[in-house]
Amino acid sequence: MRMPFIALSIACLSLAGAAVSMPPPQSEPLLAAAVEVPTRSPANVARDSYRHPAETLAFFGVKPTDSVVEIWPGGGWYTEILAPYLSAGGKLTVVSPPGRPSAGINAKLDKDAPTYGKVARANFPSALGGTGVAPGTADKVLTFRNVHNWRMGYLRSDKMDYSAAAFREIYTMLKPGGVLGIEDHRLPENADNERERTSGYIKVSTIRKLAEDAGFQFAGSSEVNANPRDTHDWPEGVWTLPPSLQLGDKDREKYVAIGESDRMTLKFVKPAK
């Protein structure tokens, strides 16, 4: 039995601007129940020990009455939890690249109307076309392991980094006081910046600068998705580790024992005024 949700106050920054790491929050009962819904894929449930969904969403402060935008949900790992959690009093919008919707998420949304019938769809980034999220309509914008894609120029033939524009667009989606929650593969601060362009890992300092340049205020970090066994220097980047395991059977047991990547979990706030 999990304890009732304990509200998290926004962490103060030190004079040196260092990130403040918060203890893992406790999830409230409705959120804990959403993680346990029977409509979740068994394969996705098996990854909860790496992704800590209830604690992560509690850290971001997601409430059942929120209007939540999930950017690039892929196959819908978090959508499986957010959709039932928000179905009664909130709203979930899943946002896919224009012209490149995920077959996985579309199949999920189209198949199970009772669970996903209320989920709205939109496109991001809107610079590539499609229908974006209306400005000032979201209480929370969440994106899981995607900022590195924008930094790597994913979807662009020239591989140009469009992460700054992505953060500016996210800023416009949010209501004043709204929260941006980010989880991504963490690159050590002493690593070569160019590794962000090839490895799938990205630095906390890079994401903080992108967010703060767009107008966000840093509101804290959590180590709930950290993995100290990840040394961040694999032959195929982050995709060497589970669940991708791009090396196939080569050293498979080694990489399975390490587990999924070391991940940052960061929270930002759009100023209320």
Rank of each mutant, 00 (worst) to 15 (best):
P235N: 10
G215N: 09
R121Y: 05
N146H: 12
L187E: 08
G76M: 05
R145P: 03
G99P: 06
K273V: 03
V37A: 11
I182E: 11
T143S: 12
A166L: 03
P42I: 01
L245R: 12
G74C: 07
R145E: 06
I182N: 12
K209G: 08
S222M: 07
G75N: 09
V224T: 15
K270I: 14
P98I: 01
D184G: 06
V119G: 08
I182R: 12
E183Q: 10
A138C: 03
K175Q: 13
M264C: 01
E70A: 05
F216D: 02
V269S: 00
V45T: 08
S163P: 01
N44I: 02
V238Q: 01
C12E: 13
L82M: 12
L142R: 06
E223G: 09
E28M: 04
D251H: 09
A46S: 14
F5L: 14
A11K: 14
A138N: 07
F59P: 04
A43N: 05
Y50C: 10
Y116D: 00
I105M: 11
D249Y: 01
F268P: 05
Q246S: 13
S221N: 04
T56L: 14
H148K: 01
K209W: 04
T65R: 05
D184S: 06
L31I: 02
F216C: 00
E70V: 07
W77I: 12
I170D: 06
L210M: 10
S41Y: 01
Y85S: 03
A257R: 15
M22S: 13
L245D: 04
G248W: 02
R51N: 11
W234L: 08
A138T: 08
G259D: 11
T65Q: 07
D161V: 02
L180Q: 11
K270W: 13
D66M: 09
G259E: 12
F268M: 07
P53T: 11
Y50R: 15
D192C: 00
T206H: 07
